[in-house]
């Protein structure tokens, strides 16, 4: 099957076969990272604009490297120091950027649905690089690729997602993707950080760390998003770290072949103890490397879909 969508906005809308196509394409892209000269001519003459309204190191750099390895011209735009700081609206900014004929706009924005809004307004391809607490599809795709690389398959695997589920677009995208591919998902965290009705996404809910991580194939620790905490959700960082931080001691409840994942940036000593983040079960840096491959795959597939529109 071929890729027919103009945009990549959510994991929720993707068919399992589409997820498979992106992962297979990304797996092929990984070979380029091992080359001495990391460049293929595929997207020569195409322009990718990174439109970032929120801070980002990993994701923006990852999209930039992905575009450059495919020979696209990559332009970075960030809200700080731009027309947005002067009060221009998201749509006006996007329309102005579109007037300069980009092929793909990669957008990160604090408002859920921002990427959908742009996708409807713009004729070029739009990639959601994180919209509020809604979705972050390329993160879920790189997580799935990392798990598939390490375990050899995805169907039937069990995953515990631990931490600030309520504010996490990473959790939401992963839950949608994992459920579609036949994986079992448990979410765990303090009750204030578990969204009500989350069971309707087909996940189990657990309120004890040791119970959640016992007997799963993958433990995905989420960043405690201090910038999205508006008062009273947790008593203190110290208490959170004590009950929900993954340490060598709490890890003893997990299986011997467990994978420890984290979307970054890690709050060392809060959700992840340094000895776990740097330990033998950690695949955090594999996730980052796979991020470039996944974004190369997405840019490649979207650049083709646009031409027939």
């Amino acid at each position: 099957m071929g890729w027919m969508r103009k945009d990549l906005l959510t994991m929720q809308e993707l068919e399992p076969a589409e997820i498979g196509l992106i992962l297979d394409t990304a797996a092929s892209m990984k070979e380029i990272a091992g080359r001495e000269i990391k460049k293929v001519p595929t997207l020569r003459g195409r322009t990718v604009v990174n439109l970032f309204y929120e801070a980002s190191t990993r994701t923006r750099t990852s999209f930039e490297i992905a575009g450059k390895w495919l020979s696209a011209d990559v332009v970075n735009w960030s809200a700080a120091g731009s027309s947005a700081a002067k009060g221009e609206t998201l749509l006006d900014t996007a329309k102005n950027i579109e007037a300069m004929s980009p092929d793909v706009v990669v957008v990160r924005h604090g408002a859920s649905g921002a990427a959908q809004l742009l996708a409807r307004a713009l004729e070029c391809a739009v990639v959601n690089a994180g919209d509020g607490a809604h979705e972050h599809p390329t993160q879920a795709l790189l997580d799935l690729l990392t798990i598939r690389d390490k375990k050899g398959h995805l169907e039937g695997l069990s995953v515990a997602i631990v931490g600030d589920i309520a504010h996490s677009r990473v959790a939401r995208s992963n839950i949608h993707g994992m459920k579609k591919l036949g994986m079992t998902v448990t979410v765990a965290g303090p009750p204030t950080l578990i969204p009500p009705f989350v069971q309707e996404l087909g996940v189990k809910v657990c309120h004890r760390l040791e119970e959640a991580i016992a007997d799963v194939d993958v433990v995905m620790m989420l960043r405690l998003q201090a910038e999205r905490m508006t008062g009273g959700l947790i008593p203190s960082l110290r208490e959170y770290a004590r009950y929900w931080g993954l340490t060598r001691a709490s890890l003893s409840a997990a299986r011997q072949d467990v994978l420890i994942m984290h979307p970054g940036p890690v709050n060392r000593g809060i959700e992840l103890a340094p000895e776990v983040a740097d330990g033998p079960y950690s695949v955090i840096l594999d996730q980052v490397a796979n991020g470039v491959a996944v974004r190369m795959a997405v840019l490649y597939l979207l650049a083709g879909a646009r031409a027939q529109a």
């Binding site: 071929g2 092929s28 070979e31 879909a305 027939q308």
Partner: peptide, 23 residues
Amino acid sequence: LDITLYRDDLGLKAAQPVVRGTE
């Protein structure tokens, strides 16, 4: 060798051809 990323007709077809990887 997979030559998909080096084709001269990318974007001319309905969907991008499948990349199968160079080893």
